[in-house]
Amino acid sequence: MSQTVFYARVSTKDQNFTHQKDQAEAAGFTIDKVVSDHGVSGIHTRLSERSEGKRLFDILRSGDVLVVRWVDHLGRNYEDVTDTIRDFMRRGIIIKTVINKMTFDGATKDPMQAAVRDALIAFMAATAQAQAEATKEAQRAGIEAAKDDQQRYRGKKPSYDRKTYQAVIDRLALGEGASSISKATGLTRQTVLRIRDKPETAEAALSKWNI
């Protein structure tokens, strides 16, 4: 007896597969079994290398239906997705997507139908990879922007460490001049004067940069 297996993948702790399963059922699928991977990046991990995803190759039989939200859940890139879909089809497994309700069935013997099907698989896999790369690039840009914002908030990194700062304070307390302290510590005279005039600001800068 054939079965319908729903495969879900969520990459962060904040996501959960229940929403994906609800979407599939709302689209009219009757799910017999759910297989899900948590905390797994689809960009870096092949389906056959995921702790639960690799089970699909064991539990699915000819005539079974594999339901996924979208083809990108079946691999990490164009080649991986297309290879996985073709592998399942060779085994007689039917693949269906929740989005757009696409069906990929390897049963057809008509070469024209097979050509159209394979072209569609290739197009969808390429689109999935392009979307994944765009998402990754957006995330990278967001991280860099956050770093820039953090750096602007903390201000310019001090040119001295806490030991050097303390040496300047101690020498100033002994009445030593800015030029002499500059020569002894390697700091510019202007930096020594800034520490002398606003020691609380210098101390705050060290704290912001965890120095």
Rank of each mutant, 00 (worst) to 15 (best):
L174G: 11
S51P: 09
A8F: 06
K33I: 09
A130Q: 15
E133S: 09
P111T: 06
F104R: 07
N210K: 13
A146Y: 04
Q139A: 11
Q150L: 15
A128W: 01
G53Q: 05
G106F: 01
T135W: 15
R117E: 13
A122S: 14
S36I: 05
M102G: 10
A130P: 06
Q139H: 15
I99T: 11
R9S: 09
L60S: 05
N77G: 00
A128Q: 05
G177P: 14
T164H: 01
I169G: 04
A126N: 08
T18L: 07
E79Q: 10
L174F: 11
D32R: 09
D58G: 03
Y160K: 03
L172E: 05
A125K: 05
Q139L: 12
F123R: 15
E176G: 06
S179R: 10
T103I: 04
L172T: 10
S62C: 12
W70V: 10
D80N: 00
D161R: 12
F17V: 14
A26D: 12
F29A: 02
G42P: 01
A125I: 07
R90I: 04
N100E: 14
A138E: 14
A205R: 05
Q131H: 06
T188R: 07
D83P: 03
R55K: 01
A204T: 13
R152Q: 13
K208L: 14
R152G: 08
Y78K: 12
R162I: 12
R86N: 11
Q20K: 02
R55P: 11
K21W: 02
D149N: 15
R154C: 04
